[in-house]
């Protein structure tokens, strides 16, 4: 559909003899509202939420030791991310310039490395399990057991083997995140439509061509779903691992939440938590559009 209409033809009320089938609708207040009301409502909503928080913390019955004012949280966020805090002499209880950002980068580093490993190994393992019966037979008891077992239960054993250094974080995150990738990839291979495979065979595709040109693209959306699941599972894994780590400084954002709460620094606890929440939100929202980008054919046609 080419878009070559002139502005005149789009004017309602003066129908041209040959109006194009698809025209641009003009902006009206109603259309603006319909399209942007969500943004507007969100802004108002959050403003009200944080105002009530501030008022409740200031005048409410909850002690500020466990429920800080939002302005204090903002102050901790500022110092924790961009520094400039005048903290000399005061009992800052873990609050320091860049304390949030440094811990955040630590978390991000461990998380990304673990995710790369999970995805990088999970996909080929899932593909092999789906494609080769004997690989499936050999690996499936371990995969299904480990994926059903609450990962925290093997923590003591992991500690015995690798101690409580930062290596254990990688181990926990990978063990949490790799199984959704394996299982979804496996499911994709297993459910590849027979008629698509038959069609490729009919046109002379070899076994390896069938895998590369039919099974693999068919499996791609499943892999995307697996990766999405794995990213959010990995996030649980990273915070869990940081709670349990024995680090004395820069143990990650989860470690900071845990330690700040132990030190009764409520503003810093909330500030670290808020940072984590925003990161998780961006991550999850980001992966939601991933499938539409990677596998556009899975979209139902929209007009």
């Amino acid at each position: 559909m080419t878009d070559t209409q002139t502005p005149q033809t789009a004017t309602p009320g003066s129908p041209q003899p040959h109006e194009p089938r698809i025209r641009k609708a003009r902006w009206t207040w109603e259309r603006i509202w319909r399209r942007y009301s969500f943004v507007f409502i969100t802004i108002v909503n959050l403003t009200v939420f944080f105002t009530i928080w501030e008022l409740f913390a200031t005048f409410g019955p909850v002690p500020s030791l466990i429920f800080p004012r939002f302005s204090e949280v903002l102050e901790s966020l500022k110092i924790g991310w961009i520094g400039g805090g005048n903290l000399e002499g005061s009992d800052n209880r873990m609050l320091a310039d860049f304390v949030i950002s440094r811990n955040f980068w630590e978390t991000l580093k461990i998380y990304s490395v673990s995710m790369v490993v999970s995805i990088g190994f999970g996909i080929p393992i899932g593909l092999l399990m789906g494609a080769r019966k004997w690989v499936d037979a050999i690996l499936s008891p371990y995969v299904w057991t480990l994926s059903s077992l609450p990962r925290i239960a093997i923590y003591p054993i992991l500690v015995m083997f690798i101690g409580i250094g930062s290596e254990i974080k990688y181990a926990i995150i990978i063990l949490t995140a790799i199984f959704p990738v394996i299982i979804n990839t496996w499911a994709g291979v297993k459910t590849t439509e027979q008629s698509l495979i038959n069609a490729a065979r009919m046109f002379g595709a070899s076994r390896s061509q069938i895998y590369r040109k039919v099974v693999l693209p068919y499996t791609l959306p499943f892999v995307v779903t697996g990766v999405q699941l794995s990213l959010s599972r990995g996030l649980i894994g990273v915070v869990l691992a940081e709670f349990l780590t024995g680090a004395t400084q820069f143990g990650g954002i989860g470690w900071l939440v845990f330690r700040a709460a132990n030190a009764f620094n409520a503003p810093l606890t909330y500030a670290a938590l808020l940072s984590l929440a925003v990161f998780a939100l961006i991550l999850v929202q980001g992966t939601r559009s991933m499938e539409a980008k990677i596998a556009p054919w899975r979209q139902v046609s929209k007009t």
Binding site: E193, S195, A199, M202, F203, Q209, P217, Y218, L220, W297
Partner: peptide, 24 residues
Amino acid sequence: MVFQDYAIMPWRTVSHNIEMAFEF
């Protein structure tokens, strides 16, 4: 062969699907 459920690859364009006849 022409299949009842079409069996064309959803990730390929029309011309890319027809190219399958020559691809392998």
